[in-house]
Design a protein around this nucleic acid. Sequence first.
DNA 1: ACCTGAACACCGTTCAAGT
DNA 2: ACCTGAACACCGTTCAAGT
Lengths: 246, 246
Amino acid sequence: MPKRPVSEAERRRRRPTRGGAVLSHRLILDTALRMLHEHGSAGLTARRLGTALGADPSALYRYFRGMDDLILAIADDLMGRAADGWQGTGAWRDDLRDLGLRVHAAYLAHPQAAVLTAGRVSGRPHETAADETILGILRTAGFPDPDAVAVYQAFIDQALAFAALDAATLALPAAAREADHAVWGATYARLPARTHPHIAATAGLLVARMNRSAYPTALEMFLDSAEGRLTRARAAAAQVPPGRRP
Amino acid sequence: MPKRPVSEAERRRRRPTRGGAVLSHRLILDTALRMLHEHGSAGLTARRLGTALGADPSALYRYFRGMDDLILAIADDLMGRAADGWQGTGAWRDDLRDLGLRVHAAYLAHPQAAVLTAGRVSGRPHETAADETILGILRTAGFPDPDAVAVYQAFIDQALAFAALDAATLALPAAAREADHAVWGATYARLPARTHPHIAATAGLLVARMNRSAYPTALEMFLDSAEGRLTRARAAAAQVPPGRRP
DNA sequence: ACCTGAACACCGTTCAAGT
DNA sequence: ACCTGAACACCGTTCAAGT
């Protein structure tokens, strides 16, 4: 196990690099995000990041344990961008929808970063803050704790899972993305009705939909079902008045 | 654009490699899946694959355009494994649940491959066959075409998105996976109630749930909502008898 | 204290040459 | 027809040396 890099607060001297930049976690993170946009999700390498910062690549290892540590920091940064400035209205369904769409949008704004961070639990401040917010919305709305936890987990995983899936398409190099799009136009829309009757019958609708994210539909379906659960939980609670609870 | 490698049917001579193996798409695919299991999702490289096959790495380029082409072939293979031997019962809700869980399970059986193929549209035979099956289940159940297409897309994307998300955890090297698990135990369960009251209040439930997939919950919520849609669509259709349709 | 430079052990892909 | 071998342009990370 390599030893922990020096934290931002502990730093004393800030000697500039050969290129004149003064390194910091923030500067490295911002430069990494810029490189991901410019060069794609495979384009973030320690060597290129060093060059972009005007520093030797090995200097990065004083700030991050390695590329994996940097990627977890990027993940938490994306979550921070999603939650930045958010205010709840008190209407749980509207608030959840809004948060889900914000997380999805924050990831899609940095699709190459989203691909890299998909499925990683960072446990860092922005992530825990988002989790606390979502659990608070559900518990305040009246979901009993076991339901709140189950619905919370399905909600955040659905948002992140669709973000990663949709980001994967956007993050492809332009050529590959066009090739994937062309698959729909060329292969699916022209499958013969004899072998693929259902695809053939709905080809127009399929092609129109396939280049749009399914997340808004899936999110609304999720909220429908959550509302049903809440109604049933409230009805069950009304059967057992507060004074008679064990 | 590199030229297309020779297809399996077009091959004439089958000269064995230096290592004695006779190359084929199937052999390369199976060897690639084995390497992914043994060395993780970053462990599939052209050089290692060559060594494992007893061939020079450059020989692979006569079978696949490059690593990306190989990855799309692996994606279609996973979909084939999911659908292999599946039989519908005619009960749309049971059939969809079964297919969703099968796709999820097929991907989780090869998590390192799932990570690599997440979000890629292959347009190849097993993928189109699965799409035809799902659309058929929905249209036969009575979903009007626009609903059938919307629900189909949300269904397949949700299955693949959760598969990729859950696979990302399983595909981590053992050390990183344990570190991610430890994040839950150490960070989340011990956040103070003063700053994170909702996480603190449900910490036991959270830790118990977090190492299990949220897909079964999300899938059941999805099916709840789809059932509501179908009921409403049937009611609307009953309002307009067939003879009066435009 | 912090950054550098060399070193080590790797990559994917191309293309002319061999069999 | 198919595979090989060399070549090219890259990787992440470590560690002793410089400032």
